[in-house]
Nucleic acid binder design. Structure first.
Lengths: 351, 351
DNA sequence: TAACATAGAACAATCGTTTGTTCAACGCAA
DNA sequence: TTGCGTTGAACAAACGATTGTTCTATGTTA
């Protein structure tokens, strides 16, 4: 049981409020230098730290943020979290982490619990389009920032990449390599990244004059297993694609595993492109060609937008959109892997 | 601003305490069925949730745990965290996550901040031997569980694997493959895993009648970069080792990268064994032979030990030690990789 | 000397709950 | 009618901080 103001007040023979004022360096008050000295010594000796809970109750601010994601074991979200913590921790915030495994009910339940805990704000990376949970956040006036995925276009603060452009450059790359049948592992149509990257994919196909074939698009979700299932479906077609653009690196990994199991060589029999450039992408053999986005920066930018809302006290709809950059590795171009760990060009944010 | 007891009290024309008793189903008090009904309806209509901060102040319990680790982007710690959350979340706890990057000062600072926040307990996976922070936790009577690494033998609740045995089986495996010069990337001598796995390594060498050669042991730390540096040192010797046992999978990964860069083939020129069996291990080419430990279970068990301390109100020194299991893959035995993703036997915990 | 600033610190309300204690009203037996 | 046991709910004191207001000595000025 750490020391409290009241106990210190007894020891210093002053009122608790006086101690509080000294501890907080309250500018509004005049304190005799001698008593200030006495109290400061006492504070140091006892290593007094104000009780954060009591403080939170009085100040109505807890200095706690929460990050809500599908799954921290996915390297994308791990890097994202680091970005958030690196942005928020130096400013005195602690960060809670909640995994939803993609379940809307788990997401809802976590958000309610976080609200009851009075976290100062929430960074949400697991939202779907027209997400009831996001609307609830707005309705409760809980400061929040969506990351990577948005819910209702432009209604919330958001950090992400230009997904249409990303899908476009990824697919165009495959077109330029001469592929005529290009498959797409399309995430989900209930998720913004799924819809937009697919739009980019379709745009590139159209630009190139290739025929659009709905059979080449398979909903994969965002897990490795989902990617494996969807890829298996595409690669089992009589007229199977010679290239696949996967909505994320993890689904691409699932696709690679399946392709290999089917005896297909990468990239000779099937080329694969992912999205996000997670650290794993450059370590695979062959390396995974992918669309690089600055994941750590996503988190740091989200933390900034969130703290800004908390400190100004008003909701924001600001959007930070990073420019995606294609990184070519061995999964699309034989021999492209040397040197290992190719660095993409720096990414720039707009607005 | 969510509804408070006081507001509800006005609307229901009763005293706030009465609402609180209905909300908490207080058994100690008699309430007329009719008013209970009335209040319950009101609670439902307004979706009343008690303010967790106020509750925490009064009850002296916040239902928040913290996990302190070196770095969440290391897959080992990501899996560990999931274990903790999966264990704690169903019982109403939220979990804070703090990364230390191996800095004692960051660790200290995070722990102080968590204490000020009055988290109910801490799970610490970044401790060193004779860690002042751990002693501070004990001194402050903060419920805590050490994971993977311990500080002062037997002084704290602990979850981990039998590191000596793990180091032994890993090294013995290399001996049995006929290697005569076996190197070791030894983590740090300030960390329990470093000391103990090294002890296992030395034991296996001694058992086999091989000469002990201090030059074959290099301190690597626990990062990929550290592993790369240390491996480069070992592999640059005139009389370089033909096999390496690395203290963790990530250091092994660093070693593999360096070996490949030096033009050495794995496993033909140098065999590599890691420790932990992170998901990445089975995805590398060749697959990484490693010592499997149930990482997710580490987290879940730690959460259990911690909640037990919180609920009984007394510190525990209980230890949960899992049995490590060697998993042989292509990094030590050519052609061992098929089928992909070999499963280790189930691990059993002792005590 | 009376009136009045001013410095220095105490006072007290408040944040939203929880929970031991007290109290009012009623029914019933003597 | 008096007294007592019950029931149902109000009262009030925390938990530990913050902060606007009030109070009491001083010291200063007219």
């Amino acid at each position: 049981m750490p020391v409290t103001l009241k106990e210190l007040a007894v020891r210093a023979r002053v009122h608790p409020s006086t101690i509080s004022r000294v501890a907080n360096n309250d500018p509004s008050l005049r304190i005799a230098p001698t008593t200030r000295q006495r109290i400061e010594t006492l504070l140091r000796e006892t290593e007094y730290r104000p009780n954060g809970v009591a403080r939170g109750l009085k100040l109505r601010q807890t200095f706690a943020l929460a990050v809500v994601i599908p799954d921290i074991t996915n390297p994308f979200f791990a890097a994202l979290f680091r970005g958030v913590e690196d942005g928020a921790s130096p400013r005195g915030y602690n960060v809670l982490l909640c995994n939803t495994d993609g379940s809307p009910e788990r997401q809802r339940s976590h958000l309610h619990s976080l609200h009851a805990r009075r976290v100062d704000g929430v960074i949400l990376a697991s939202s779907v389009l027209r997400d009831p949970s996001v609307r609830w956040l707005r309705h409760q006036h809980i400061p929040h920032v969506l990351v990577n995925r948005f819910s209702d276009d432009g209604q919330d603060a958001f950090v992400g990449s230009d997904d249409v452009l990303g899908g476009l450059v990824a697919t165009r790359h495959l077109v330029e390599l001469g592929h005529r049948r290009i498959g797409h592992l399309a995430g989900k149509l209930t998720v913004s990244t799924g819809v937009l990257r697919r739009r980019g994919y379709l745009g590139a196909i159209a630009d190139s004059g290739l025929p659009a074939d709905a059979a080449l698009i398979a909903e994969s979700g965002y897990t490795e297993e989902g990617g494996a299932r969807a890829a298996e479906q595409l690669l089992s077609m009589r007229d199977r694609p010679t290239a696949i653009f996967a909505v994320t690196d993890m689904t691409a990994v699932g696709a690679c595993t399946v392709a290999r199991r089917m005896g297909l060589r990468i990239p000779e029999d099937v080329a694969v492109v992912g999205y996000n450039d997670i650290p794993l992408a450059s370590r695979l053999v062959p390396g995974l060609t992918t669309v690089h986005v600055p994941i750590h920066e996503f988190g740091a930018a989200a933390a900034r937008l969130l703290m800004e809302q908390i400190e100004t006290g008003e909701a924001s709809r600001r959007r930070v959109i990073f420019n995606p950059q294609l990184v070519v590795r061995g999964s699309t171009v034989g021999g492209a892997d040397a040197p290992v760990n190719r660095r993409p060009a720096a990414a720039f944010a707009t607005e």
